[in-house]
């Protein structure tokens, strides 16, 4: 055996020993500081079933018909949605603020303030993305305590916009107001109504 081939064999043996030591003592991103046994892999599974009522817009009622503030109402989620869209399309910031539920409004305004999203930003955004655009109803989802209206804002050429957007409403006293209650809810996160999804399975590694 030449010196070169001896070195090659030595390298292979070292590699095998190194691999063995890795498998024998697993390393993780955080380790305990007291003596422990070997790490064992486990899995915990949680199944949640959500129920909702699905509504589609009737033929001829797809287009959102905007109203002046004096004709607006918050007596139902649908009316509140019309008020919300009318406030945005008429660049009425105060009216838009008045369509929020109090706690959700505070949460939203704090978040926007941290991101520097002030009144000027919103008016500019609405001017560019809402004013003069066709808004259509896509779906209505009714949950025990909330109603979600899904809508689409058309592009300037009148073609449907790329994504459908949800607005969540909750009833506070006699009025339906915009709510952030469902911001972390899995049902809204996965919005199964978009593709008619009835089950989703996720593995968190």
């Amino acid at each position: 055996m030449t010196l070169k081939s001896k070195h090659a064999w030595l390298n292979v043996i070292c590699l095998i020993l190194f691999s063995f030591s890795l498998s024998a003592q697993q390393t993780f991103w955080a380790m305990p500081t007291f003596d422990v046994g070997e790490a064992k892999e486990g899995v915990i599974s949680v199944e949640q079933v959500f129920h909702y009522e699905l509504f589609q817009p009737k033929q001829g009622y797809e287009k959102v018909r905007l109203v002046q503030r004096k004709y607006a109402s918050l007596s139902s989620a649908e009316e509140a949605f019309v008020a919300r869209m009318s406030a945005i399309a008429s660049l009425d910031y105060q009216w838009w603020l008045d369509t929020w539920e109090v706690d959700s409004k505070q949460l939203a305004l704090n978040y926007y303030a941290n991101k520097g999203l002030d009144q000027t930003y919103w008016l500019d955004t609405w001017q560019k993305q809402f004013v003069g655009r066709k808004i259509t109803y896509k779906q209505k989802i009714v949950l025990p305590e909330h109603t979600i209206i899904i809508y689409n804002v058309a592009a300037p050429n009148g073609k449907p916009g790329p994504i459908d957007l949800p607005v969540v409403f909750e009833q506070a006293k006699q009025e339906w107001l915009v709510s952030l209650d469902l911001r972390r809810a899995p049902l809204l996160r996965y919005s199964p109504w978009i593709k008619g999804l009835d089950k989703k399975e996720i593995v968190y590694e």
């Binding site: 915990i44 199944e47 959500f50 199964p192 009835d198 989703k200 968190y204």
Partner: peptide
């Protein structure tokens, strides 16, 4: 009425 089942596995 519709239902949606979410199954999450946490390793």
């Amino acid at each position: 009425e519709r239902s949606f089942t979410l199954v999450e596995h946490y390793k």
